[in-house]
Structures are given as C-alpha cells and as structure tokens.
Write a protein that binds this DNA or RNA. Structure first.
Lengths: 213, 213
DNA sequence: AGCTGTGAATATGTTCACAGCG
DNA sequence: CGCTGTGAACATATTCACAGCT
C-alpha cells in the first residue's frame, strides 16, 4: 500500500464520487482512457482540479494518454470504501424512505438495506420486497442482530434527534440524515446531512440576488 | 436599502438557510433573542462564523443581548428570496417526485407546485392533490402558461439532460436537480444538485478511512 | 506532442481576539 | 459586563504554469 497520507477535504471526497460516476459512464460508452479535461467536464469541475484530487492518492494517469478508466474506477471504488459491504438500515418508511429504498444507485453500489423500521403501526408488518417493516421499538435489537453500520434517517424532524441517538446507542457508526435538524451526537459518529430545504433556498437566493446585477 | 454588496459564498448561503430554520425553531420555543453561540449550536457551526455571516448583511445583533429573533428571521427570509412567490414545476412523478411533492418544508416556505409532468402514460391524468399529472410532451407549453420559474427535476439520469434543456428553453431559470448527472446548461441557469449517491459515498469514505487512524 | 503531476501563486474561507456599544 | 462586529492572522482550497514522462 503506497496510499499517500494526505487527508482530502470534504469537497474533494465528493468530487471523487463524481469522478467514479463519470468513469462508469465513460466505460459504458466504450472508452478506455480519459484525460483530466473530460473527467472535469463530466464532474462539473476543472482539469487542474481533477489532477490535484487524483494525485493526492497516487499517480494513476499516463502522460500523453490520460487516465486508464478501468483501473482508476477500481481504485476510486476502493478509496471511497465501496469494496467493503455495508449493512444499512432504513429508519422511516414514509415517502422519502420509499424513494430511497428504491433508489437505483444505492443498489448498484452494493448497499444492502437489511432492515426497515417505522413508528406507524399501520406500516409495521408490511413487506417491501423481501424486508418486513419492523416497529420502532425493535430498532436497537434489530440494529444489533443485523449488524447495521449505517442508518438512513428519513423520519420527521421532530423525532430525528431521539431516533438518531437510539441508533447510535445500538452501535451505528454512520448516519445519512434526511431530517431537517442538526443532530447532536458524539463525534465518533459520522453524520452526513441531505437537506433539500437548504438546497432549494440556496437556489432562490441566487435567483433573487441575480436581479440586482 | 442598506444591503452591503459583498457576495456571500455558496456555503455561507447554505448556513443562512440553517440560521433561518434555527430562528423559527427558537421562536416556536418562545425565545425572543438568541446569542450567536446558540444559533451556532442549532446550525452546526461556530459563534464566530454566525457573526461573520450575519454581519455581511448588516448589523442585526444587539450587543450584550444577542440577535432579535423575529426581525432577523424576517430579514433572512427576505435575503434568501423567500418573500417573493416562486412558481415551481415538478418533473418526474416517480417516488422521489412524490416524496418532494409532499415534503412539508417546501409548502411551509410557500413554494407552490403549479404543475407536474411525467413521461409515463400510466401516470398522466392522475391527480396529486389538486394537480393533474401532464404528459412530458406538454412540458414547454405548461411551463410557459404556468409561468414556472423553478423546476424540481426528479427523472432518471438517462433523460435528465434532455428534459432539463427543454425546461430551460421554455424559460425556466432555476433547477433543483435530483438526477445523478452533471447537467450541461447555459450559465444563466441556476442549478443546484442534490446527489444522494455522493452523500452516501462521502459517508462510507469517512467510515472506511477512519479505521486507518 | 500530449497530458500528467506538482510546486508556487492566488484566492477564498475560517478562526482569533478584542475594541466598543448597549 | 455580555455579546456583537470586524480587522488581522491563519488555514484551506483552487488555479496557474511548466518541467518531465511516455
């Protein structure tokens, strides 16, 4: 292992994920290698940025040729922690939960949803594909017996903090949080927020601000 | 208008949205004013950051007291462009589209979904609340007649680019994109990506990387 | 010749620390 | 005296530009 020890920034990691996707697309299109410029176009960044990001992990590129698609794809996959299997639980079987459960990219990446929990007694007992929705009360037990490492949190804002804390106490180490609240959790838990309200408001800000120029 | 002209960064804008939410929460809890430290806690940042961010738009705070919740809330609302009404179309009536259509925060913010389009003939004609899902072919016409400014794009990755380009040609100026593709559009269109695959992979990266330390 | 890898230059964002107001 | 507002110090991220490999 000659992985360089420089910790990449949060945004660099997000770009790695975009590069991985671009490589998959290009490979499907029959390409074999790609210059930084092309990856930049597909990932919405600049060629220099691509080279900086990738060079932080080693020398993958071939001068004069670009980056070999297949081997770089494999390497990014590994770097992003996708070679390993992750056991995921979905908490909240509402509309957002349903959308995420079906999200094709999650399955394609090998994320295995091994349990679903919901507080609504009308939903518990129902099956989604081959998984039975279990009551919220069984969450801790289920997380432990299923060895869940990551939780996708898709519950209402009002219960998110409590539910997240319970999931953590049951041993979860990562949370993808869709609830619009800032979770207060111990620092050894990795939390990533997906905040659609914030994204939409960032958009209206730009549109609103633009008229002034 | 004494708005200072400094253009805030992308991440500063996102924080403004979080401060707005925090202020709404605090107001609901009966608070009247809040020091930067409290806003920071609720928004997941630091007190200094809160003060810097807010001071870029004027002097809202009261020394010794903190920030007056109600008036700051109103001001942030205005700054984020939320005072104005936005006419929104939802493109793609699949699971993600359904989840977004019901997302409580969107309605609460006054975003009005005035049209829904989908390519699937099985879905067109169906009503969601009081809106009939229209066929994709009617998109341009519908966007124009309904004076749609913002599109929420929730279609499969394969059709996203084409559909987005059509929406833009019909006059849309902002897109909230849920499709996992980098849209290639003219620079006068504001695009904001919500990429769940990227978020999840940023999480696995951190979890994976952590073991090495 | 084409394109990477990378130091150096620049730009941007964050934290510190404290003067000064209420 | 508490807490904001803000320059100055620091830290990070991005872009430039070019030497050097293939």
């Amino acid at each position: 292992m000659t992985t360089s020890p420089r910790k990449p920034s949060e945004s660099a990691v997000r770009r790695l994920s975009l590069y991985l996707r671009a490589l998959e697309e290009l490979q499907a299109e029959g390409e074999v290698s790609a210059p930084s410029e092309l990856l930049a176009l597909r990932a919405g960044t600049t060629a220099a940025q691509v080279r900086k990001d990738l060079s932080a992990f080693g020398s993958f590129g071939r001068r004069g040729l670009g980056y070999p698609i297949d081997s770089l794809r494999v390497r990014l996959h590994e770097i992003l922690g996708l070679s390993r299997k992750w056991r995921v639980a979905l908490i909240g079987a509402g509309r957002i939960g349903a959308a995420l459960f079906e999200y094709p990219h999650f399955r394609k990446r090998g994320f295995e949803i091994v349990a679903i929990f919901d507080a609504d007694p009308e939903k518990t007992g129902t099956r989604w594909r081959d998984i039975t929705i279990r009551p919220a009360a069984e969450m801790e037990e289920g997380i432990q017996s299923e060895k869940v490492q990551i939780v996708i949190l898709a519950v209402p804002a009002t219960s998110a903090q409590t539910v997240a804390a319970r999931a953590v106490s049951a041993g979860v180490s990562g949370i993808l949080n869709f609830a619009p609240v800032q979770l207060q959790l111990p620092p050894n838990v990795e939390v990533n927020d997906v905040d659609m309200a914030v994204e939409l408001e960032a958009l209206t800000f730009s549109l609103h601000a633009r008229k002034r120029s």
